[in-house]
């Protein structure tokens, strides 16, 4: 039996269960958002949300899942260049998404729609903010992976496992974003 593979399968299962935990957490926050939106006092979601910024940030984040798959293909066939490019672009897209997200929040606050304006805005910030925190964490993780790839002080297989686990995380964060589009933005932009 390949010993490393067995240990990796443990890790894989453990991490997928962890993602299940995260999805329960996000589900709770989605429920919170749905319960409190729209709030009885202004602003209403319609006054706040802007289709343009949502579409723009979605494009960047969702395409990053694609570039990550591209990187994975390189990883599998040990195409160092393809993997590095893929990871690099994914990181870049993630950072751009973060920038857009910060800009969006900043704009809302400038318009007077901060965290405490009403319960709808609160529910929005705690949910989307937590997602943004996940993207931030993921970006840091990617940088760490890039460093480990460059120095490669471990076997290639062990590194591969690390990147695999990261991929589950990143795709998961993307799926959460899809839910955010569907449940948070879309009902009030259509």
């Amino acid at each position: 039996m390949n010993e490393q593979a067995a240990l990796f399968k443990d890790k894989q299962l453990g991490f997928l269960i962890y993602l299940f935990v995260e999805s329960v957490m996000f589900a709770t926050l989605f429920a919170t958002y749905i319960i409190f939106t729209p709030a009885p006092s202004s602003p209403r979601p319609i006054d706040v949300f802007e289709a343009k910024s949502v579409i723009l940030s979605s494009v960047f984040l969702l395409s990053s899942s694609g570039t990550l798959i591209f990187a994975e293909k390189g990883l599998n066939v040990r195409e160092s260049k393809q993997n590095l490019t893929g990871l690099g672009i994914t990181l870049l897209l993630g950072l751009i998404f973060l920038g857009l997200e910060i800009h969006e929040f900043y704009k809302y606050v400038q318009e007077g729609n901060g965290l405490t304006v009403n319960v709808f805005m609160s529910a929005f910030y705690v949910l989307v903010g937590l997602h943004a925190a996940h993207v931030t964490f993921g970006s840091g993780w990617m940088i760490l992976l890039l460093i480990q790839y460059k120095t490669m002080k471990q076997s290639y297989q062990l590194y591969t496992e690390k990147q695999r686990i990261f991929q589950y995380y990143w795709h998961f964060v993307d799926v959460i974003w899809v839910f955010i589009i569907i449940l948070v933005y879309l009902p009030y932009l259509l």
Binding site: V21, V24, T28, T32, L115, S122, V126, L130
Partner: peptide, 30 residues
């Protein structure tokens, strides 16, 4: 897995209510 995740988010919201002025569980619209 399920129960403690929900508790964790409940506490997260309560933290916002207590420290950052949101009103999920109190006030006029909470």
């Amino acid at each position: 897995l399920i129960a403690f995740s929900v508790l964790s988010m409940g506490l997260y919201l309560l933290m916002f209510d207590r420290m950052f002025g949101t009103g999920f569980f109190s006030g006029d619209t909470g």
